[in-house]
C-alpha cells in the first residue's frame, strides 16, 4: 500500500470573522496526481497556503512527506515544488537569474535539470521579468518548481496563461516526474485536466472538503460543484 505524502487532519483556518477552511481532512498517497477542485473562494488556496507555511492555521495538523508542516517546514520545502496561481518574481531580475537564485537558496546544483526544462518549455533566460508575459512568467515558475526534482508538487491553478502546447508539455513533465516516484496535488478549475491526468480528486465548497469517488467526472456533475 502506498504511503501518504500529504496527511491533513481537521484543519481549520479563519481570517478573523471570515471563513477560511473548516475541519478539512485529506490524504494524498505517493504517486498520485490529486485533483483539487472547487469554486473561487472555496478554500483551496487557503489549504495549500497552510500546507506551505504561509498561513498560520487555527487548529488541526498537516503532515507532508511524514514531517510536521510547522516544525519541519524547511525540511519539507526542500522536497516540495510549489507553483502559485500567479507567477510573481523580482521585476529587474532576468529569468535565468531567478531560476539560478531559487536553486542556490536550495543549496543544490540544478543546472542540468533547469537547462532541460528551459529547453522543453522554451524559456528565454536572458529576458528581464518585467519584459515577460504572464505565460512566460508561468513557465519560469514551472522551472523553479521542478528543477530540484521534488518528491511532491503543489500546483495552484498552474495552466492559466499557458498556451495549449505549453500546457501539453507541462503535463508531460508531471507524468514523467510522477512515473519516477513523485506525487502531485493539482488545484484547478479545468475539468479536462482532472479527467485526463488526475487519479483521485476532492472538491472544496464553502471551506469544507469532500473526497470524490473518482476523478472521472462528467460536465454536469462538475458544473454542479460550482452552483450556489
Amino acid at each position: 500500500m502506498a504511503k501518504n505524502v500529504i496527511e491533513i487532519k481537521n484543519l481549520t483556518k479563519n481570517y478573523g470573522r471570515n471563513r477560511g477552511v473548516i475541519d478539512v481532512s485529506l490524504e494524498v498517497s505517493e504517486g498520485d496526481i490529486f485533483g483539487f477542485i472547487g469554486p473561487n473562494g472555496a478554500g483551496k488556496s487557503t489549504t495549500i497556503r497552510s500546507m506551505m507555511g504561509f498561513l498560520k492555521f487555527n487548529t488541526g495538523s498537516i503532515k507532508i512527506l511524514g514531517l510536521d508542516s510547522v516544525r519541519d517546514r524547511n525540511e519539507i520545502l526542500k522536497n516540495v515544488g510549489y507553483m502559485p496561481s500567479e507567477a510573481w518574481f523580482y521585476p529587474d531580475m532576468r529569468a535565468g537569474e531567478v531560476i539560478e537564485y531559487a536553486a542556490r537558496v536550495r543549496g543544490i546544483d540544478c543546472r542540468n535539470e533547469a537547462a532541460m526544462l528551459c529547453e522543453r518549455l522554451k524559456v528565454d533566460r536572458n529576458k528581464k521579468i518585467k519584459e515577460l508575459s504572464l505565460g512566460n512568467k508561468k513557465k519560469i515558475s514551472i522551472v523553479c518548481s521542478m528543477q530540484h526534482r521534488p518528491k511532491l508538487f503543489i500546483f495552484d491553478e498552474p495552466t492559466g496563461g499557458l498556451d495549449p502546447l505549453m500546457q501539453k508539455h507541462f503535463f508531460e513533465l508531471i507524468d514523467e516526474y510522477v512515473n519516477e516516484g513523485a506525487t502531485c496535488l493539482l488545484s484547478t478549475h479545468v475539468l479536462s485536466e482532472v479527467n485526463k491526468y488526475c487519479k483521485s480528486a476532492a472538491i472544496m465548497r464553502e471551506g469544507r472538503l469532500t473526497m470524490l469517488e473518482s476523478a472521472a467526472i462528467d460536465d454536469d456533475t462538475f458544473l454542479s460543484f460550482y452552483e450556489e
Binding site: 520545502l77 537558496v105 536550495r106
Partner: peptide, 14 residues
C-alpha cells in the same frame, strides 16, 4: 506588495 513572498518563502529558507 510585489507578490514575491510566495516565491521566496516557498524556498527552504525560514
Amino acid at each position: 506588495e510585489g507578490h514575491t513572498g510566495e516565491f521566496l518563502f516557498a524556498l527552504p529558507v525560514s
